[in-house]
Structures are given as C-alpha cells and as structure tokens.
C-alpha cells in the first residue's frame, strides 16, 4: 500500500505566544517547533498500515526550511521518504491555498491513502484534508478513529467519530483521503536505529515557485488582527506562596462558594 501522510510543523505546545509587530500573527523567532498532534497520530497509523500490508509511507509538508526537523522525526519513526514544499516566506496562508499546493504536488505521486490530521494545532482550520480530497476528486472521511484497509479490493473502512459518543463505520473506494483524530493509536518513539537511518533518508525539497499553481484563483481570506481574547468573566486569581494560595482556596471553597 502506498501511504501518504500530510505533516504540519507547529509551535511547541507549551509556547507562550507573543503577537508579532504587524499584529497579524505570532512571533516565531524564539519558538521551538513540533509536529501537530493529529499528524503524529496519522503518521503512526500509516506506519501500522504499512506493517500490515507492506508498501511505503511518504511524508508531505508545506512549510519553511525549519520544518525539516519535524520531518526528520517522522522519518526516524519509520517513514520512508519525504517531500517538503518550501514556503520560507509564509506566502501560503489559507487552508484552500495549502490544499491547492499539496494537490499540485500529489499529481506526480502515487498513493492509495492520503492521511491528514483532523485539525492543526496552530491555525486550527479543520479544512485542509477535506479541501484536498475535493481538489483531487477523491472520496474522504473525517475524524477517523480506526482504519481497516483492503488493498486487494481497493477499499478502506474508516470509523468516524461523531457527536455524543456515537461512531460510524464507512467504506470508501481507494484512493481516498482520511482525516485522523488524536488517540487513534499509541504513538511510537523513534528508536536509535530509526534516528540513524533517518539521516540517510531522502527529503525532496520543492520550491513553491517551481510548482504550477495559480494562487490568485483561490478565494482570499485576510487575517486582519490576532489578539488575546478579551473576556468579561475572569477567574479570581489567588495570590501568594503555595501555602497561602492553598489556604485561601480551601477557605473560599468552604465559605464563599460553599461547595465543600
């Protein structure tokens, strides 16, 4: 089976974000980066499918050069090769544009399944995978919690998570796009051997300008401003040493909130 996993690099989970000078994004200069959570799960799932059915796992990323570090991690986990579409200036901003670029690269690729995350942890659009499916003319299923592939029949069953504890199995002809939900399986650690091998694996760099995509035809959406939410009802923050805050808290829970 040929598996293709879209992998996005995002700022570290515990980052304290600061707004950039233009007020339209965050400062990225001093940040560390990691793989978006769902994408790590989707890579894990690709590796499992390869273990079961044989074949190949390729990683596809659109991002700046620093994304290579996250790609290396994916290769160390066990992916076979990777493609990095270089967008060092951050020109591609909307999910529609991202999907268009990814779709263009995929024209040259062979695959049975494309896996993306359900939602990225930075922009959190929850769009890219489905846009990609439609641009490629492929069927899709979203928020997937289990996959059973049947390469011989060119069919795949996917378990979709639905609201309030419901699940549904659907069946799609392959090739297809699945958007993967966190928790689909347990993510492996890269072994030392994997890390060594990853150094030798190929990361093919593709320049955005070398691709034949016309982003001007993509619906444009402008981010005017990014800011910390202003909230009306804010918690009463308890101040003092650990002993003091704990004492205040117990007092307040008993006397003020009367919940203890």
């Amino acid at each position: 089976m040929k598996l293709l996993t879209c992998l996005k690099q995002i700022p570290d989970r515990d980052t304290r974000y600061e707004i950039n000078a233009a007020g339209t994004g965050i400062k990225t200069s001093d940040l560390t980066f990691e793989i978006s959570e769902c994408d790590e799960y989707s890579l894990e799932e690709s590796l499992k499918l390869r273990e079961e059915h044989g074949g190949e796992v390729a990683i596809l990323t659109l991002g700046p050069q620093r994304a290579e570090k996250s790609i290396r991690k994916g290769l160390a986990m066990g992916a076979d090769r990777a493609i990095l579409v270089r967008d060092d200036e951050g020109k591609v901003t909307t999910p529609h544009a991202v999907a268009k670029v990814l779709a263009e690269v995929l024209k040259e690729e062979e695959y049975d399944l494309i896996l993306t995350g359900t939602q990225s942890d930075d922009w959190s659009y929850a769009q890219t995978g489905v846009l990609l499916a439609e641009l490629l003319g492929l069927p899709h299923a979203t928020i997937v919690m289990e996959i059973r592939a049947d390469p011989a029949q060119k069919k795949v069953k996917a378990l979709r998570e639905m609201e309030s504890g419901w699940f549904q199995w659907v069946e799609l002809p392959m090739p297809a796009v699945l958007t993967i939900q966190a928790g689909i399986s347990q993510i492996r650690y890269a072994s030392l051997k994997g890390i060594m091998q990853a150094k030798k694996k190929e990361i093919r760099n593709v320049e955005l300008s070398d691709l034949n995509v016309d982003l001007s035809s993509i619906p444009e959406i402008e981010v005017l401003k990014v800011y910390f939410p202003v909230v009306e009802k804010k918690a009463e923050i308890l101040q003092g040493s650990t002993a003091e805050v704990v004492e205040q808290l117990v007092e307040k829970l008993k006397k003020e909130a009367k919940v203890l």
Binding site: H96, T118, A126, Q127, E134, L135, I143, E163, S217
Partner: peptide, 24 residues
C-alpha cells in the same frame, strides 16, 4: 454550525464552488 457533519461537508463545498470558508 461547526458540528462534525459540517466539518465533513463545508470544506468540500468550499472547494467545489471555489468560495472562501471561515470555520469555527
């Protein structure tokens, strides 16, 4: 609404008619 069903549908629609989509 940004419910599971529309997470499955809205981006497909946006791509099909090539229109902008702002989610959530």
């Amino acid at each position: 609404g940004h419910i599971y069903q529309n997470i499955d549908l809205a981006p497909k629609l946006a791509a099909a008619i090539n229109r902008g989509l702002v989610t959530d």
